[in-house]
Design a protein around this nucleic acid. Structure first.
Length: 134
DNA sequence: GTTCTTACA
DNA sequence: TGTAAGCA
């Protein structure tokens, strides 16, 4: 009752609900390197696990190159500590990015509020009728 | 029928 | 990443 240890590209695509193109793209980007049987791609459990990590990283918002860095550490050093350290760094960077975006959004929202107020003031003066839609 | 590469959108 | 062409 052993789990299958090799998969076709279609197997993984349906398992993770992604397209064949996506998997081939990740390979092209160096995130996975499935075995070959002639031209055919043969994926093992390691590839499957990596693919899972890739998708998780993508969900968090990491770039493919960032994900590759983590994956490489996992392969080369097999040093889980350094891998976690790297992930920690990337997560920190990602949080900083998001916080920066939040500040930008707040700034724009603020400008919009001021512009709206200005428009209402102008309209009030011209029509002598208060416009308070919000 | 399925997968592959290449090239363009 | 999607899609299409032309193979194996």
């Amino acid at each position: 009752m052993q789990e299958r240890d090799t998969f076709t590209i279609s197997d993984l695509a349906s398992d993770f609900d992604i397209t064949l193109r996506t998997i081939r793209f990740y390979e092209e980007q160096g995130l996975i390197e499935p075995q070959r049987e002639g031209r055919q791609r043969i994926f093992n459990r390691r590839d499957r696990a990596r693919l899972k990590l890739i998708l998780r990283g993508k969900r968090i918002g990491l770039s493919l190159s960032e994900i590759r860095e983590i994956l490489d550490l996992y392969e080369l050093a097999r040093d889980e500590a350094s891998q976690s350290l790297k992930l920690l760094q990337l997560l920190s960077d990602r949080k900083q990015q998001l916080e920066e975006q939040r500040r930008d959004i707040d700034a724009v929202l603020s400008e919009i509020d001021m512009l709206e107020q200005h428009c209402r003031t102008v309209i009030d003066q011209m029509t002598d009728k208060p416009v308070h839609a919000g």
